[in-house]
Simulated scan of single mutants.
Amino acid sequence: MTLHWVKYSEEAHAGLAQMYGDDERFTAYYDAVRPGATAFLREAILIYTGKP
């Protein structure tokens, strides 16, 4: 993320994770690779950032 964001923050990363689950376009994209991938990615990010 730090390659594309001028200033990385855990809060922004956690917000992005929330958006993955809330936006059906992201869910369709990730779950097309493997069903449940969006939920897994979201939870992994929230655990990593300590923002569950």
Rank of each mutant, 00 (worst) to 15 (best):
M1H: 08
M1V: 03
T2E: 02
H4Y: 01
W5M: 01
V6Y: 00
V6N: 01
V6C: 00
K7G: 01
K7V: 00
K7R: 07
Y8S: 00
Y8T: 00
S9I: 02
E10R: 00
E11Q: 02
A12K: 03
H13P: 01
A14W: 07
A14H: 07
A14L: 08
G15S: 05
L16H: 06
A17I: 04
A17N: 01
Q18A: 14
Q18V: 11
Q18E: 14
M19E: 05
M19F: 07
M19Q: 10
Y20C: 03
Y20Q: 06
G21R: 09
G21W: 06
G21K: 10
G21M: 12
D22C: 05
D23M: 04
D23E: 11
E24S: 15
E24M: 13
R25M: 07
R25I: 09
F26K: 03
F26W: 15
F26R: 06
F26I: 01
F26M: 07
T27F: 00
T27E: 03
T27W: 00
T27I: 12
T27N: 02
A28M: 10
A28Y: 05
Y29K: 07
Y29F: 12
Y29I: 10
Y29E: 14
Y29M: 12
Y29D: 14
Y29R: 10
Y30K: 12
Y30E: 05
D31R: 00
D31C: 02
D31G: 02
D31H: 01
A32H: 11
A32C: 08
A32M: 05
A32I: 02
V33R: 09
R34E: 05
R34Q: 13
R34W: 03
P35A: 13
P35D: 13
G36P: 13
G36V: 08
A37L: 15
A37Y: 06
A37V: 04
T38I: 10
T38L: 06
T38P: 07
T38V: 10
T38E: 08
A39W: 03
A39T: 13
A39K: 15
F40K: 11
F40D: 07
F40P: 02
L41Q: 03
L41V: 08
L41H: 05
L41I: 09
L41P: 04
L41Y: 04
R42E: 12
R42N: 13
E43K: 15
E43N: 15
A44H: 13
I45C: 09
I45H: 07
L46F: 14
L46A: 10
L46I: 12
L46Q: 15
Y48G: 11
Y48N: 12
Y48A: 14
T49M: 09
T49K: 10
T49N: 11
T49R: 09
T49L: 10
K51A: 14
K51N: 15
K51E: 14
P52T: 13
